[in-house]
Simulated scan of single mutants.
Amino acid sequence: MDKSFYTSWIVEEIREEGRQQGCQKGLLLVLEGRGIDIPEEVRERITTCRDFDLLKTWTQRAGTAASTADIFTEEATDREPSAGEDQL
């Protein structure tokens, strides 16, 4: 049996799309589960994002976010401390 189909570029594309959709759904579930209001424009931003790493970052932030704005805002912990700042 020829298995080359399973390693083709189209299958990889389908897998990547599935990972993105799963992360999008997971992010929305976290927000809904925490009782955070999801305005339509935020829902659209999440469901149209195709950057898997960015979706993962947003999902991690959703665990502690007080609102959807906190998910999209650069946090101090997302950057390297500048000279003179304490490192934890």
Rank of each mutant, 00 (worst) to 15 (best):
D2G: 10
K3T: 15
F5E: 12
F5G: 08
Y6V: 07
S8W: 00
I10P: 02
V11G: 01
E12N: 14
E13R: 13
I14T: 01
I14S: 04
E16R: 07
G18E: 06
Q20L: 07
Q20P: 02
Q21P: 10
G22R: 07
C23Q: 04
C23G: 06
Q24Y: 04
K25H: 14
G26Q: 11
G26S: 14
L29R: 15
L29H: 14
L31V: 06
L31R: 02
E32N: 14
E32A: 14
E32D: 12
E32Y: 11
E32M: 11
G33W: 12
R34T: 05
R34M: 11
G35Y: 01
D37T: 13
D37Y: 10
I38P: 02
E40Y: 03
E41G: 00
V42R: 07
R43H: 08
R43A: 03
T48Q: 07
D51G: 03
D51T: 12
L54P: 11
L54A: 14
T57M: 12
T57H: 13
W58T: 01
W58R: 02
Q60P: 09
R61C: 06
R61I: 00
R61V: 00
A62Y: 01
G63F: 02
G63W: 01
A65V: 04
A65M: 01
S67V: 06
T68R: 03
T68C: 03
D70I: 02
I71A: 01
F72S: 01
T73Y: 07
A76V: 01
D78W: 02
R79Y: 05
E80A: 04
E80K: 02
E80N: 09
P81N: 08
S82A: 03
A83E: 01
A83S: 10
A83D: 03
D86G: 09
D86V: 11
D86R: 08
Q87I: 15
Q87E: 15
